[in-house]
């Protein structure tokens, strides 16, 4: 990995390590080294550099909430905002523990799209009514409650690298 004009440039080994970690982040330096045919100390150096420069943000566990009996409601909330207040609304939403993701969109006027999670529909409504609607600059809100998930994948480096070659 190199830093070129303040941008991070990954080498071939970095890309391969990231692909392996995306599949299973619990693999040891030795295991990754064996898979790629390099010393574990080399793997350590590459991973450490990528962590240091924020390429690898964190390692986390994907928990199946249903399996441990945690009932919850997930919704996609589109918040239409006054353009001058949009940034502030996005920041305030980002601070809420009920909000998992916040993005800006230009598709229809200026809007903030957020993924929200709550214990049940009533809690979800209370959060939106008491903590989102009163925010200065909020014009209206559209919320879709997710009833069934057909696919839930993270961005895959492997697929992206394959497609960018063609």
């Amino acid at each position: 990995m190199k830093i070129k004009n303040q941008a991070v440039v990954l080498d071939n080994l970095d890309w391969k390590i990231l692909q392996i970690l995306q599949e299973n982040a619990k693999q040891t330096y030795t295991e990754i080294g064996q898979l790629l045919g390099v010393a574990h100390s080399t793997i350590y150096d590459h991973i450490h550099k990528m962590e240091e420069h924020g390429v690898i943000k964190k390692y986390t566990a994907v928990v199946d909430l249903e399996k441990i009996g945690i009932k919850h409601v997930t919704a996609i909330m589109t918040v239409f905002t006054n353009p001058q207040e949009s940034e502030k609304v996005a920041k305030r939403l980002s601070e809420s523990k009920e909000v998992l993701e916040v993005s800006a969109s230009l598709s229809e006027n200026l809007s903030i799209i957020a993924k929200v999670v709550a214990e049940n529909q009533n809690r979800l409504h209370l959060f939106i009514a008491q903590s989102v609607a009163p925010l200065p600059g909020v014009l209206r809100i559209r919320t879709s409650i997710i009833t069934r998930k057909y696919k839930d994948e993270r961005f895959s480096i492997e697929k992206w690298k394959m497609e960018s070659k063609h």
Binding site: A75, F80, Q121, H125
Partner: peptide, 19 residues
């Protein structure tokens, strides 16, 4: 104060923009 105003929704999470 605006945080205590009544906010009109048409269904769960769908705020009309009226308060």
């Amino acid at each position: 104060p605006r945080e205590n105003a009544f906010y009109f929704f048409t269904s769960i999470g769908n705020y009309t923009g009226e308060n």
